[in-house]
Every structure is written in C-alpha cells, then in structure tokens.
C-alpha cells in the first residue's frame, strides 16, 4: 500500500481563488480532473468552467483548490525545492536597479 504521504501544498491561484474542475462526459464515465479555473467565487467558477466544458459534460464539480489537499505516492515531480526562495529582488532592489535612461 502506498502511504500517500507527500503533500503538494504549493498554492495554485494566480490572480484570485483557484477552483479544481472535474467533469463526467457520460453518466457511466468516471469523474475526471480537467484542470482548474481562476474565479473569486464558486458561482463564477461554475460559469468559467461551464464555458469550457458544458459542451460535452453531464456532470461538473468545482472544488476550491486551497481546500483540495493533493498527495502523491512519491515525491512531487519537481523534487522538494521549497517554493519562493530568496532568488527574487526586493521591492527596494527593483526600484534602485530600474534604468530610466539616466546615463544615456
């Protein structure tokens, strides 16, 4: 038995909440994960997902990604690197590094 003790806990949302979308294309089919949509509320997530999948789906679920705990049987695909290390400039650094044509 796999332990499924590797949780993929990095956030999925880019601009607003993210919603995992599951569809069934026929009542006899399994429910399948088909990606995620960004939306501020479940209602809008439903609209967004329907615009993409209602053509063929008979069942559609939208689940908040931040409440969807993802576990792998093995370490996550990208290895265990921690999200958001200190590789990125601070706001002050960006400000002072930005060229504005001073030395042209």
């Amino acid at each position: 038995m796999e332990e499924f003790d590797h949780e993929v806990d990095a956030p999925r949302g880019a601009t607003s909440r993210e919603w995992e979308v599951f569809v069934r294309e026929d009542t006899a089919d399994p429910l399948t994960h088909v990606g995620s949509v960004s939306a501020p509320s479940a209602d809008i997530a439903r609209e967004q997902a329907a615009a993409l999948f209602a053509r063929t789906a008979v069942t559609m679920w939208v689940c908040p990604a931040d409440e969807t705990h993802r576990y792998q049987s093995d370490a996550a695909t990208l290895g265990s690197g921690k999200a958001g290390d200190d590789a990125t400039m601070s706001v002050d650094e960006m400000e002072s590094e930005t060229l504005r044509g001073e030395n042209r």
């Binding site: 993929v8 990095a10 601009t15 990208l78």
Partner: peptide, 13 residues
C-alpha cells in the same frame, strides 16, 4: 490564457 490551467508541474510532468 491564465484563467484556466490544465494542471500543475508540481503534480505531474
């Protein structure tokens, strides 16, 4: 097309 994602490379290649 940032409002829809097929999946995440942390989950799957």
């Amino acid at each position: 097309w940032q409002g829809y994602s097929l999946g995440n490379v942390r989950d799957r290649s």
